[in-house]
Amino acid sequence: KCPLCELMFPPNYDQSKFEEHVESHW
């Protein structure tokens, strides 16, 4: 789950994509 927007991600979600998403909040 994204700590900034509460959006849920699947357990096998690509880590780099997840980090990209988190950085999109900044």
Results as ranks from 00 to 15, higher is better:
25 H>L: 01
4 L>T: 15
20 E>I: 01
18 F>L: 08
6 E>H: 00
16 S>R: 08
23 E>S: 06
9 F>P: 02
4 L>P: 02
24 S>G: 09
10 P>K: 01
17 K>L: 09
16 S>F: 13
7 L>S: 15
26 W>F: 12
8 M>C: 02
20 E>N: 14
15 Q>Y: 03
24 S>Q: 06
7 L>M: 14
18 F>D: 03
14 D>G: 05
22 V>N: 07
1 K>D: 07
21 H>W: 00
23 E>I: 04
13 Y>Q: 13
6 E>A: 11
1 K>Y: 06
3 P>T: 15
20 E>G: 08
9 F>Q: 02
4 L>R: 14
12 N>L: 09
10 P>T: 07
17 K>A: 12
16 S>E: 05
11 P>H: 06
4 L>I: 13
18 F>K: 10
20 E>F: 04
12 N>F: 04
15 Q>R: 13
13 Y>H: 12
26 W>V: 15
25 H>G: 01
9 F>N: 10
4 L>H: 15
26 W>S: 15
26 W>H: 14
19 E>A: 09
4 L>M: 13
10 P>R: 03
19 E>I: 10
5 C>I: 00
19 E>W: 02
24 S>F: 10
10 P>H: 08
21 H>G: 00
2 C>P: 06
16 S>C: 11
7 L>Q: 15
8 M>P: 06
22 V>C: 11
12 N>P: 09
3 P>W: 02
23 E>N: 12
11 P>N: 14
2 C>R: 01
7 L>F: 11
7 L>H: 13
18 F>C: 10
2 C>S: 02
15 Q>D: 03
25 H>D: 03
11 P>L: 10
1 K>Q: 05
18 F>A: 07
8 M>I: 12
18 F>R: 13
4 L>K: 15
5 C>M: 04
15 Q>P: 11
24 S>V: 06
5 C>E: 02
3 P>F: 14
13 Y>A: 06
10 P>N: 05
24 S>C: 06
18 F>Q: 14
17 K>T: 13
3 P>E: 10
16 S>Y: 10
14 D>P: 05
2 C>E: 03
19 E>Y: 04
21 H>D: 00
4 L>F: 13
12 N>D: 14
13 Y>D: 09
15 Q>G: 11
11 P>F: 04
17 K>H: 06
22 V>G: 05
9 F>A: 04
6 E>Y: 06
16 S>Q: 00
12 N>V: 09
19 E>N: 14
12 N>G: 11
22 V>Q: 01
2 C>G: 00
22 V>R: 11
15 Q>S: 08
16 S>M: 07
15 Q>K: 09
21 H>K: 01
6 E>D: 04
20 E>Y: 08
5 C>P: 03
24 S>E: 10
26 W>M: 08
8 M>N: 13
26 W>E: 15
19 E>T: 11
26 W>A: 15
1 K>A: 04
24 S>K: 13
3 P>Y: 05
25 H>F: 00
22 V>D: 12
8 M>K: 10
5 C>G: 01
1 K>F: 08
5 C>T: 05
8 M>Y: 07
24 S>D: 04
10 P>S: 07
25 H>I: 01
26 W>D: 15
4 L>Q: 14
22 V>K: 15
24 S>A: 12
23 E>K: 14
22 V>F: 04
5 C>S: 03
11 P>Y: 07
10 P>Y: 02
5 C>W: 01
19 E>R: 11
5 C>H: 03
10 P>E: 09
11 P>G: 05
17 K>S: 09
24 S>L: 10
8 M>F: 09
21 H>A: 00
3 P>L: 04
2 C>Y: 04
11 P>M: 06
8 M>L: 04
26 W>N: 15
8 M>G: 14
21 H>F: 00
